[in-house]
């Protein structure tokens, strides 16, 4: 009949607090990590993502470059693969275009339409774009391909977040 004996109910509520404590810690830990993480990550490249393409390998023919980046939704952080079409334009500037068709979002290819080998082609509804990304009137897309801001670091190409082309 000792007062210190733990009754079943008490035991249960202790245990539950215990579990609750764990759960709270489990929730807090990642939050702390998110808050601290960006500071710990050294690389000061802003929002630019490294691609495996050397800038010296870029020529006037568009080539497809894949790069990896982390994407976070409400639950998971996953590694995604992004793609860009990269080439040098007549002025010798590097251009990186998003491959996502501005019509309904299929992936466009370079030169796959036999009649228009010097254009980007969308296999879904035969949308076409000039080399600089301008949509060809009369095909379904109503806007030019998005453009990635680019920069060079240690000889490699870095790309930012693709944006709609300005002044188009």
């Amino acid at each position: 009949m000792s007062k210190h004996r733990v009754s079943r109910r008490q035991f249960l509520s202790y245990t539950l607090t215990g579990v609750g404590g764990f759960m709270a810690a489990g929730m807090l830990m990642p939050m702390v990590r998110f808050a601290v993480d960006p500071v710990l990550k050294g690389e000061d490249t802003g929002d630019f993502i490294a691609t495996p393409l050397k800038t010296t390998d870029i020529n006037t023919e568009p080539q497809k470059v894949n790069f990896k980046f982390k994407q976070k939704d409400a639950w998971y952080e996953s590694e995604e693969t992004g793609t860009a079409w990269v080439f040098k334009n007549e002025a010798g500037e590097i251009v990186a275009l998003s491959p996502v068709c501005k019509h309904l979002g299929c992936i466009v290819d370079w030169g796959t339409d036999k009649e228009h080998p010097e254009q980007f082609f969308c296999p879904c509804h035969y949308g076409r774009y000039e080399k600089d990304g301008t949509n060809v009137p009369g095909t379904p897309p109503l806007a030019p391909l998005d453009v990635y801001p680019t920069k060079e670091k240690d000889g490699f190409l870095y790309v930012g977040k693709a944006e709609p082309r300005k002044g188009a």
Binding site: C101, H103, L104, G105, C106, I107, C122, P123, C124, H125
Partner: peptide, 16 residues
């Protein structure tokens, strides 16, 4: 496997 594969297919052709 089927899940991964179809997800990728959808990414390529999501407009159609």
């Amino acid at each position: 496997f089927t899940g991964l594969l179809t997800t990728q297919l959808e990414k390529q052709f999501r407009g159609r």
